[in-house]
Design a protein around this nucleic acid. Structure first.
Lengths: 340, 340
DNA sequence: CACGTCACTTAGATCGATCTAAAATGTTTC
DNA sequence: GAAACATTTTAGATCGATCTAAGTGACGTG
């Protein structure tokens, strides 16, 4: 019990076994709650574990059984609250199953992502939840299959051969466009930013399709800087073209936040001078003023679902690949009005 | 090379050795870049590794050497962007040293935290960065010492015997109070929320000391709900007392965001009708309108510093405990004016 | 009383790396 | 040509768990 004795060498199962007058094998059975051991023996062993302050060594166990109880999560970055919420959902579910999450950010760089995947394999992760970096080759999925590593794609996908959890961006776009159109808007811009990936493409395509089916001009894509601070300063991009839009749909929470700020800086009143619709709707969104009408994609729920899928995939690698596409909902608040 | 052969049994160092016509020991030396092996042999082994698609098994290695290359990070939650930024800093530094971060959230619950610490010990983490849950007993530090586990406290501290990295909340408070006082404010409220812990206490004490040294009444502490959505709705608490404050200092980013929204909902103009100062200044802060004057604590830098300290602590457990207290800076923007 | 059954218990091999101590090989030196 | 030395290489034990296959009693039965 006292700290000095234990400090040098960690307490091992063999120590426990000796202390309880049983064999290592029996102690191991107690550890794994096997029904084979007698209740009197079980109690003796459990007491010995407490007495000695025994700590299970998962690493050693993993050498025998093929299960590390570690899963990996790779996201582009963490300062974007959207990914933080995603991660929160992942950690919640994985933690509840007794596993542990290794966290890493790729910075949307393919080489970094490759390095991280290797590192995770070295750690023997049971599986990985991956939000693929922009420009990830689809051949990565073959490599992953080759490695025999269970992987769930989240938010973005590079292959149909791996599980995927995301949101229905196209429908979200349609909801936004339809709502604006119903208010009478015709010149609607889509404010995009960041690298191109499947989620980007789906939003852009969704925007175009929704606009076309309304008979509206789908070509007004305006590209904003990546950094939040720069977006507000670039607000003028909205007005640099011949025909000025009466409404803007934002690519994500960052763009919405930036433009909301930028428009106010220009002295414009959102919802009156220009209508604004956000995308993603992270937790902070409800505290922005003016209240932003926004398409919600539910990052926490996506993270939870991805974690569940990964757990199932690990349990049964032969399962056919599944795609879970969450519904989006349009939260109508106060940033949209009739065009002027 | 082809996927079928390898799928059953993972490629081991022994396979590599055989393929390169050397012993397991030699292959191991190559792996660890020992200068002992001849350059011709080294090349042969490295080629074999590539040919067979060998992946290092850290878990197996860890059984011999006492180093898992895993560190743990425990934070109260992840949806608060403050902690997400902290984590981003941690991951950045730990990742750069070739280690990996296990992430977990305690939900500010002591039992959960205890369970997580145990789980991390089972995984043999080399050390832990811990933001202690509220109401953590200071005896935890003795247990941790007993375990011989390197731990760095971040943002909150429970003991002087462990390393600590945080921000100088007291000085931050003084900066805020001084600034408001210099504008002529005398009735300044401190809007707090959440559980009580060292960082909470330091802010409260800092507020009181700063107010007292200006000869102002330090007793106006107003407690707001924990959830962001509730804060805005509770804004009226500011005006429920006999003498209404002319300025409010916010406990953190969430309170600042909530009150900023709530005040606007009341039809008040921030900076004119009431002055508001934020605390923490996460990345989003620069995009809030009106621009919030705010005390910045630099979460990313704190995370980075904590990670560096942990790495040093792991390298030399005998080091005396250190405390790193980052300076805070007051970012003056537009949410404060003269009292009316 | 021998034998089969039931309920536990255990010895020893095993997972994939590292480490020690010794062996093999090559090079100088006298 | 042998001893001394430097340079590489290796056999085998080891880390702490799990797993297989076999062992030990106790008990009931024909």
């Amino acid at each position: 019990m006292s700290s000095e004795e234990r400090k040098k060498t960690r307490v091992t199962l063999l120590d426990v076994a000796r202390h309880a007058n049983v064999s290592r094998a029996t102690a191991s059975l107690v550890l794994r709650k096997s029904p084979l051991v007698g209740s009197e023996t079980r109690m003796r062993v459990e007491e010995a574990m407490r007495d000695l302050g025994y700590v299970y060594n998962i690493g050693a166990a993993r050498l025998r059984v093929e299960r590390s109880q570690i899963i990996g999560a790779i996201v582009p970055n963490l300062t974007n609250p959207f990914f933080a919420e995603l991660l929160s959902g992942i950690e919640e579910i994985i933690g509840a199953t007794g596993k542990v999450v290794i966290l890493a950010k790729s910075g949307d760089r393919v080489e970094q992502q490759e390095m991280l995947l290797r590192r995770m394999r070295e750690h023997g992760v049971d599986g990985v939840i991956l939000c693929p970096a922009a420009r990830t080759e689809s051949t990565l999925s073959e490599q992953i299959a080759d490695w025999g590593m269970p992987v769930v794609q989240v938010l973005r996908h590079i292959s149909f051969d791996m599980d995927y959890v995301g949101a229905d961006y196209a429908t979200g776009m349609r909801q936004a466009v339809d709502y604006l159109a119903s208010l009478g808007h015709e010149r609607i811009a889509f404010a995009v930013h960041g690298p191109v990936h499947s989620a980007y493409q789906e939003r852009v395509d969704g925007f175009r399709d929704a606009m076309l089916s309304r008979g509206l001009d789908p070509r007004v894509l305006i590209r904003f800087p990546t950094q939040l601070g720069e977006i507000a300063k670039a607000t003028h991009l909205l007005f640099d073209r011949a025909t000025r839009p009466t409404a803007v749909i934002c690519f994500n929470h960052l763009v919405a936040l930036g433009l909301s700020a930028g428009l106010q800086d220009c002295g414009l009143t959102i919802g009156r001078d220009l209508s604004l619709i956000g995308f993603d709707d992270v937790a902070d969104a409800e505290a922005i003023r003016p209240r932003l009408t926004s398409v919600s994609t539910g990052p926490v729920a996506i993270g939870e679902m991805a974690a569940r899928l990964l757990v199932e995939r690990i349990a049964d690698p032969a399962l056919p690949p599944r795609r879970v596409v969450n519904d989006t909902t349009l939260h109508i608040r106060q940033s949209c009005g009739r065009p002027t």
